[in-house]
Design a protein around this nucleic acid. Structure first.
Lengths: 218, 218
DNA sequence: GTCTATAGAGAGATAGAC
DNA sequence: GTCTATCTCTCTATAGAC
């Protein structure tokens, strides 16, 4: 292990790496399909046959990659959590232009990102009621780690925003966190989209306003 | 068959009325069970076998009363809409003590009622994604009428509250209406309940605050 | 109108050849 | 690792006796 003498110009490792990359690429294609179907139809209405058909492989091949439907859903959720964390990284990059400076603005930017993703059908949605699925998710280490990482980073911003007086300090931080998470499955977005009277950008701003400013006049 | 000479002083009409009442009573018992199961598990996870078992009758008997599972769900939704409309009536009863006087306070009272009902497991929840179910609901006259009645009455309060300056006038009334409807399936309630750190009353007030006052400090 | 028994369809998961 | 074919189970809905 210590002896990495690095004249490894030839094939052997490269070949295995190539295969592994193919494997990962296929799995990523699968997860992308799952992600979209979860966003479009939800977990229960998504069938494994659908996934296999859209990926273009046989169902049995799918089960070589993922041992169950629940694992498919978990993989999609993990991928989305990673994307969310990556986006939070960009918010902390102070060198980027237009980067939000205050904790409240970071929270707003994160919420906007979530709303846009949902409107564009990129955000997988799981049912609130489904104990077996929730159990499977909670046993998935990547999922739990991703969710905890997200919660910790948002939680830090929440507490900072409450400390600087920009966020309502009377609310427990956990209530704020859950309220923000709930924007990821807010049915209001779909309802407003269904009216056909608003652009996606307008819908985002309306929901942002109700979320941070409330319904009552200020 | 034609010869109904009948000295009908006795039972016949009374008997039929009694039978009809029994029929309705049983159907109401069924709908109550459906209502609770929908609130606990959601539509997909509720099976017709469960309903029959909890009511204490055979599944085939259930299908004598309601022609399909979708009709069961629709009946529960209609019942809940009627209860909601009845509650709005009490809000308009100016003679009642403690009755809200302003449109905004009426909207708040209606929202509180919804949140409490959900916390107590009385509010049936349907999946956002389920086109066949939504189609069945939209063909149910009672459901559509109830929903329209509710929307009109809430809509009137919304416009009045915007006119008197207590509700944010920049939001389209339809957006406000949907935002209030969405409180009926807000996952934040269940999440906060799951922490075990708050009473139901505290949860209601937190969600009321985020809904009407927003997350940002005022 | 209530029951038992069963039809019929759909979906998750697997067997076994290649 | 991919395929076809099949298993197994669950669930909605119905048939038919009483």
């Amino acid at each position: 292990m210590g002896t990495r003498t690095e004249n490894q110009n030839e094939a052997p490792p490269a070949k295995r790496s190539f295969r592994a990359q193919m494997h990962l690429a296929r799995e990523d294609a699968i997860v992308q399909v799952v992600n979209r179907l979860l966003a479009e139809r939800g977990y229960e209405a998504m069938t494994v046959d659908d996934v296999a058909a859209e990926v273009g492989i046989a169902k049995a091949s799918l089960y070589r990659h993922f041992p169950s439907k629940e694992d498919l859903a978990a993989a999609a959720m993990v991928r989305m959590l990673q994307r969310a964390l990556a986006f939070l990284d960009t918010l902390d990059d102070a060198t980027a232009e237009g980067a939000p400076t205050t904790p409240l603005n970071k929270l707003k930017a994160a919420t906007r990102w979530t709303l846009k993703a949902q409107l564009q059908g990129e955000l997988p949605s799981l049912p609130s009621h489904n104990s077996s699925l929730r159990g499977a998710l909670m046993q998935n280490e990547d999922y739990v780690n991703g969710l905890m990482g997200l919660s910790e980073r948002l939680g830090a911003w929440i507490e900072a925003a409450q400390a600087d007086g920009s966020l309502d300090a009377k609310l427990p931080p956990i209530a704020v966190l859950y309220t923000l998470y709930a924007r990821g499955c807010d049915p209001v977005l779909g309802f407003l989209q269904g009216t056909g009277e608003f652009t996606d950008a307008q819908i985002v701003e309306m929901v942002m306003s109700t979320c941070f400013n409330g319904l009552a006049a200020r």
